[in-house]
Computed example of a mutant assay.
Amino acid sequence: MLDVPLTLADHYAIHLARDRRRSEHTVRAYRATASRLLTFLSAHWGEEADRARLARIDAADLRAYLAHRRGAGSSGGAGLANASAARELSAIRGFLDWAGGTGAAPRLRGPRVRKGVPRPIAPHEAVALATDVAEDSDEPWVAARDWAVLLLLYGTGLRIGEAVTLPGAVLPLGETLRVTGKRAKTRVVPLLAEVRAAIERYAALCPWPLASGEPLFRGVKGGALSPGVVRLKVRGARARLGLGERTTPHALRHSFATHLLGRGADLRALQELLGHASLSSTQVYTAVDAAHLLDVYRAAHPRG
């Protein structure tokens, strides 16, 4: 059986994973974007879209591609919204700069996107959510696990992917936790006593050995806990509690950030805690009313 040669999109994916240390999800998404672009351009130009031909791409070609992607006929469904189109254009620029060198991508103004304001959930909603998810399980160790995971997200601002990939090596816990985030960057976050106690209780009940090289949070069959399982459990709990669709695992991260900012946390310090590469990503939280956040933070963390 002959080996299938790697495409330009495949080589780009290898570059992202090996040289840029991007996450598996990012690599998969960017590879798909590059592949879609190459397929479109080959048909659009009537010739193969190789590196040499990509060097001659212009803004009109990109506009044609975006029009194709935003049109309902491109996939048989609804076209891309502004935010999705902007993300697609950003991914394309990265691919073209890799293929032809920095600055190779034609200058093209992207669609205007209205920046959204993070929507945290109230402290009592966060606690009710974690409680309901835990109580929905008949297995004591699974209930302890779910409570620990959600309390960890709310108490440290971790991304769900960061939480479920924590290794058993973090045990025994101290007053801080070393976390590996996007692009393999590490940061140190403080652990509240309540969060530490929840994780320790789970560890004591877990039927699987939590060796240093194994995942800390386990699924029911002993493998690593999947983020999808946590999202599914949260979805079920919010339906039972009558909470809005914004009540997601990621909303707990928003709550952590907005509560701290409302309490007067320094933006640079918050950037470090969240693992944001750019301060602009952290600054969006300043759009939330600080006075309200101070009240919310005091209700959530009376000793904070």
Rank of each mutant, 00 (worst) to 15 (best):
E48P: 01
L270W: 04
E162D: 13
G157N: 04
D61C: 07
L191S: 12
G103S: 04
C206F: 08
G168S: 11
R21T: 05
I121F: 10
L210P: 07
D295T: 13
L205Q: 11
R109H: 12
F40A: 02
E175W: 01
V149E: 05
R70N: 13
V229K: 14
L108A: 08
L166V: 13
A32M: 10
G219V: 12
H259N: 03
V179F: 10
Y297G: 14
R51M: 01
R178A: 09
D61N: 07
E194V: 02
D138T: 15
I199R: 01
S137A: 15
A9M: 00
P123H: 04
Y297N: 11
A269P: 01
A239F: 01
S280L: 06
R145S: 12
L270E: 02
A144Q: 05
S23P: 11
P140L: 11
V4G: 02
A126S: 15
G155T: 00
H44C: 12
V234H: 11
L66P: 01
R196T: 04
A299K: 13
D138W: 14
A287C: 05
Y30N: 12
E88V: 06
A184H: 13
R56F: 02
D97R: 07
G213S: 07
S84N: 02
S74D: 00
S23E: 09
W98E: 00
G94Q: 06
R240A: 14
V284T: 12
V296G: 05
A257W: 03
G76M: 00
L2G: 10
V284F: 08
P190K: 00
T282L: 05
T180H: 06
V117D: 03
Y12P: 14
L153K: 11
M1A: 15
V179L: 09
E214I: 05
